[in-house]
Design a protein around this nucleic acid. Structure first.
Length: 432
DNA sequence: TCTGGGGTCCTAGGACCC
DNA sequence: TCTGGGGTCCTAGGACCC
């Protein structure tokens, strides 16, 4: 059997942990730049506010129903997620941390009768020790475990554990789940399926394999098999090396000068390189993209450019220099830029690198300087130190107007959602 | 006025090779 | 006028996930 632990309304639950008076009240968490809704309490879901709803469009609802609004505090949420995962690992030897707030457990070999109380115990421990409510699904496949936890979340009378392991009329459960709520069936596919009168999870389970393969390809067929209880997607408990790293932001205001955009791109490239080093990896390819606002009538310009480096590296300076050159190639005067980013791909483990033929002392020095920067940033849990080229303005910084104050022991140093401060230092004499 | 930031995998189509 | 048949590799773009 496979178990799935899924934190309920995770970011909202984290805010409620800080302020228990939010319990029972409508609460939302907004994305970066306070742009869209990324976590909703059940009360907010009941108001009809959708996932990823633009904040300005639902402001009236928020006001009318006195919704508590928070800017996303990812460093804090990650700290809580870590506590959750630590406990989940106690309950299974094979755990796949599927996302920040979700984990699959391989429970093969467990007597099915024991599974439900075992998972209830996990749920209670998470509630007591971390203060986060979760839903659990137990089923023969990952897709069915997702279905089980999904149904549990929707059922106010349930005890939080959905069990498909034995003696359950799974088909009846599948009939109650709309096809678009299945893991792996998104908007396009569900539209296509509905045209074919495939409306519920049960319809999909019973669909013609030929038709599915022709229209939904291998992934669709995998989903169908998984709904039938045939395991096609394994629990991947070993964390794989990332294949790409991206850092990007929507800006708090439009950027119209190349200098400001250069600073932003230098920051993104540096942040990506830092994450690369933290993984013990090197990479050969860097890309940069720029975008104008895609929602208004302003003149549009989007562009991306990639470059293959002569050899793999993890050097902030090298990535930042190439990122700047790429930006200068795609930069066009006269547009209001709204978003930009840097991407690194063709990643391999640094220990697999071919040994250097000639020892480069300058490179060594630069590498040491960068190590110091990484250490400082990790220690202070934000970007205290940076390349001079990143500038000191951060005029392009995102908005975060409703940040909750998490105690410092709840702040997890992390490279993904690093915020920016204003004390750049130079790593060496001239770095770029 | 105000619309996130990461990731993964798959497919189609072009370039190129024999 | 007729205009091979594979194969591989790469990239762009689409679909999905949270």
């Amino acid at each position: 059997m496979i178990g799935l632990v899924d934190c309920n309304n995770f970011y909202v639950s984290c805010e409620r942990k800080l302020d228990p008076s939010l319990e029972g009240r409508p609460v939302v968490v907004l994305s970066n730049n306070d742009g869209v809704v990324i976590s909703r309490s059940n009360e907010v879901k009941a108001l009809g506010v959708g996932m990823a709803a633009p904040a300005y469009k639902v402001r009236d609802i928020f006001q009318k129903h006195k919704v508590a609004i928070f800017s996303a505090n990812f460093n804090y949420y990650l700290a809580i997620a870590k506590k959750v995962m630590t406990i989940v690992h106690k309950y299974a030897s094979e755990v796949e941390e599927y996302s920040v707030d979700e984990a699959f457990m391989n429970l093969d070999g467990w007597e099915w009768k024991g599974l439900r109380p075992y998972m209830k115990q996990l749920r209670e421990e998470l509630r007591e020790e971390v203060g986060i409510p979760v839903s659990v699904g137990i089923a023969p496949t990952k897709t069915l475990a997702k279905v089980a936890s999904e149904l549990v979340k929707k059922d106010p009378k349930s005890d939080g554990v959905g069990d498909f392991s034995s003696g359950v009329d799974v088909d009846a459960k599948l009939r109650s789940l709309p096809v678009e709520d299945i893991w792996g069936i998104g908007r396009q596919l569900s539209t296509r399926l509905r045209e074919e009168r495939i409306i519920t999870a049960y319809d999909l389970k019973s669909a013609s394999e030929e038709w599915i393969y022709k229209n939904l390809h291998v992934n669709g067929l995998r989903t169908v098999y998984e709904l039938r209880g045939i395991r096609c997607i394994d629990v991947e408990s070993k964390r794989a090396v990332q294949k790409s790293i991206m850092r990007s932001r929507s800006f708090g205001r439009y950027i119209t000068t190349v200098d400001e955009l250069r600073e932003a791109v230098a920051f993104f490239a540096s942040a990506a390189a830092e994450a690369l080093r933290a993984d013990g990896c090197i990479a050969r390819r860097i890309g940069v993209f720029v975008m104008t606002n895609r929602f208004n009538d302003d003149p549009k310009y989007n562009n991306t450019m990639w470059r293959m480096l002569p050899e793999p590296t993890s050097s902030t300076q090298i990535f930042a220099r190439h990122a700047r050159e790429l930006l200068d190639t795609i930069w066009r005067e006269g547009y209001k830029y709204n978003k930009a980013g840097a991407m690194i791909t063709d990643i391999t483990l640094a220990k697999n690198r071919q040994p250097e033929l000639d020892h480069d002392e300058r490179l060594e020095r630069v590498t040491r300087a960068i190590e110091v920067v990484d250490t400082i940033n990790t220690k202070y849990k934000c970007s205290v130190a940076s390349l001079a080229s990143q500038g000191t303005n951060f005029a392009w910084q995102s908005k975060q107007e409703k940040l909750s104050k998490a105690p410092v022991e709840y702040i997890e140093p992390n490279l993904k959602f690093r915020f920016m401060t204003h004390v750049p230092i130079s790593a060496g004499k001239k770095v770029m």
